[in-house]
């Protein structure tokens, strides 16, 4: 026999067989880091590839070649791309995103404040949307193919079909312009109390909830229906178990993983949806900060915001993956 490799256990395979849970979680972590690095390259390259030049925009009419060169030297734009990338990445890893070209302030400081605002908006939306979506999903399953299910289906389809900025303007029209039941703009200040903040952000939260709710309901419904149609649910019924016991004891543990996945994916979407909604409602969060920076070509700010959005998105997805892995009994209890 010529050169047929003996079954030498490769390290990864060995790890997978011996500690499937840990190996898979470690894999996800590594993949996420790799993904984040790739994204950082893409963001940097994307910003780099933008047409036009900050120096020319900044100087406007007075852009003499000498003035442009001065500005470029001041911001280090005369350095080669790769060395600028690694410098930027190295600083970013230490939490330093440089200073804004437009205002000269530290980007990290600015972001610290606004990220808190954005996360607050997203968290309030999630606190309302997740229980509501799972609850309505269960209702849809309970009354499958009957009126409540159809109603939920049609309304969620309608909500999915409308872009978030449109939903936002509709809400403003009804609740601010016509009835003045809610506040606009949704600007918050440091001096505001929690209650005041909640009052102010009612409309942006409503918009975000409407946008993510539909998707979560539909996925929850599909996940539960998938579990309900499996053979072990029939076994439960043929054991003479009641509906409640069947659902809590036999369906729920298996429906958990897909539902966690749906929720985490939608939370990630929430973070991205924030950008548009913040602009519509003039809310001082990351999204608005980023959009403002784009209009004046404030590249350090755009890059920093892009990287942070990407990091949150990847983190949430990774969490979803890891939770789903932990929820899988096959991996928790290897052979």
């Amino acid at each position: 026999m010529t050169g047929f490799p003996a079954t030498l256990p490769r390290p990864r395979l060995w790890l997978r067989r011996r500690f499937p849970l840990l190996a898979r979680i470690a894999e996800r972590l590594l993949l996420s880091i790799l993904l984040l690095l790739t994204v950082s390259v893409l963001i940097f390259a994307g910003v780099e590839a933008l047409p036009g030049d900050f120096a020319t925009t900044y100087l406007g009419q007075s852009a003499t070649p000498q003035a442009v060169a001065n500005i470029r030297a001041e911001f280090g734009l005369d350095q080669p791309v790769t060395s600028r990338y690694f410098e930027w990445l190295g600083n970013a890893l230490q939490g330093d995103f440089g200073s804004s070209w437009a205002s000269g302030n530290s980007v990290s400081e600015q972001i610290g404040n606004r990220l808190g605002n954005s996360l607050f908006l997203a968290a309030v939306s999630a606190l309302i949307a997740v229980p509501l979506a799972v609850g309505l999903g269960v209702v849809a399953v309970r009354f499958r193919d009957r009126l409540p299910d159809r109603l939920i289906n049609i309304l969620s389809l309608a909500a999915i079909s409308l872009p978030e900025f449109f939903v936002g303007y509709l809400l403003i029209m009804f609740f601010v312009v016509k009835t003045s039941a809610a506040a606009f703009p949704a600007t918050v200040y440091d001096s505001m109390s929690l209650i005041e903040r909640l009052q102010v952000i009612a409309l942006p939260v409503a918009t975000l909830v409407l946008v993510v709710l539909a998707h979560m309901i539909r996925m929850t419904r599909a996940a539960i229906l998938g579990v309900m149609s499996s053979a072990y649910m029939e076994t439960a019924e043929l054991k003479g178990l009641g509906a409640l016991r069947s659902i809590t004891h036999h369906a729920a543990p298996n429906a958990l993983a897909p539902i966690i996945n749906v929720v985490a994916l939608n939370l990630a979407y929430l973070i991205v949806g924030v950008v548009v909604v913040e602009v519509v409602f003039v809310y001082p969060g990351m999204g608005q900060y980023m959009v403002d920076a784009v209009t004046v070509r404030d590249l350090p700010v755009v890059q920093a915001c892009g990287l942070i959005f990407a990091a949150i998105y990847i983190l949430l997805n990774m969490t979803a993956d890891i939770l789903a892995i932990i929820a899988n009994p096959r991996l928790r209890h290897p052979r």
């Binding site: 076994t235 003479g240 543990p253």
Partner: peptide, 25 residues
């Protein structure tokens, strides 16, 4: 009444036990 019979007086053995057992328990 039917629930009281199933799993008590009449029991069922399925073709695919692999699918009929709940993977989570």
């Amino acid at each position: 009444g039917i629930r009281g019979l199933r799993g008590r007086r009449i029991c069922y053995v399925a073709q695919s036990a692999a699918a009929a057992f709940n993977p989570a328990h």
